[in-house]
Amino acid sequence: MTDPSHLYRLLYLLRRFDETVLDNFPRGVFFGTTHTYLGQEANAVGVLSGIQPGDVVFSNHRCHGHFLTYADALGHNDAPHALFAELMGRATGVCGGRGGSQHLQWRNFYSNGVQGGIVPIATGMALAEKRKNSGAVAIVFLGDGTLGEGVIYEAFNLASLWGAPVLYVLENNRIAQTTPIELAVAGSIAGRFEAFGIPVDELDSSDALEIMRIASKAVDDVRSRQTPRALILHTCRFGPHSKGDDTRPPQAVMHLREVRDPLGIHAPRLAPEKRAAIELEVNRLIGAAFERALADPFPSLNQ
């Protein structure tokens, strides 16, 4: 799992998938809108690539990277195609075109587009696994902006009271749509968890290996103690919130791309030829998945 080539391939797959989504949106091939994972790929790869088959993942609106990594870990042989097809509203999509970009479900992976509500749900899933003695844990992703929703604090309290085996992964990209964290989050993020007796790990890195190390320890701990934990990952959003709505100065985003690119950070661990080969393979795969999805049929209501 920590094979550097494999990690690079995943990071690159996530990147190319979402770049392809953004590039092709103006063509009108996708429905609705989308939230890309550009810049945050190391989080999904670091947290989810070691996941066990029974574990449950709940993701939010920015779910492509989480889904593709989960699918890869569980051996889905056609996930990029299924996700393109979902965004294109095709019958072959992850949810047959019903959900679109932010409403996915496959095996033990779920995502939903309303901020906050998934956090108690993931907590309940964790409690269900605990009652079943399955040994599985739940992992739920939330953004810094979602710290505004009150229901998450009810969930933290319940999780701590009842010992839910859940890992809260807070992806802090310091922005929510256009709102910088300074205008939306008062006080301490870690303190929010600590107030409920939930232990917190915190990392400011875009290195998939580093994230993997801290995340796998956290997951092991949740699994063995059967209690909640939080993992705060400070990260950077490279793209717009959805499609063309980035109000940050372009130089600021450019700077983030230079110093915090998960691909750039991981790349030196591979020989250049190896990297080139991986990139070629992934580009072909993405291109083919996109074209295949585009040729797939639309669903009908009776299906």
Binding site: F31, G32, E86, G89, R90, G93, G96, G97, R98, G99, G100, S101, H103, F298, P299, S300, L301
Partner: peptide, 14 residues
């Protein structure tokens, strides 16, 4: 119809 609103265009229209 008494259904959630699907994302897929043809489904949504239906």
């Amino acid at each position: 119809r008494d259904l959630p609103i699907p994302a897929s265009g043809p489904l949504e229209t239906a």
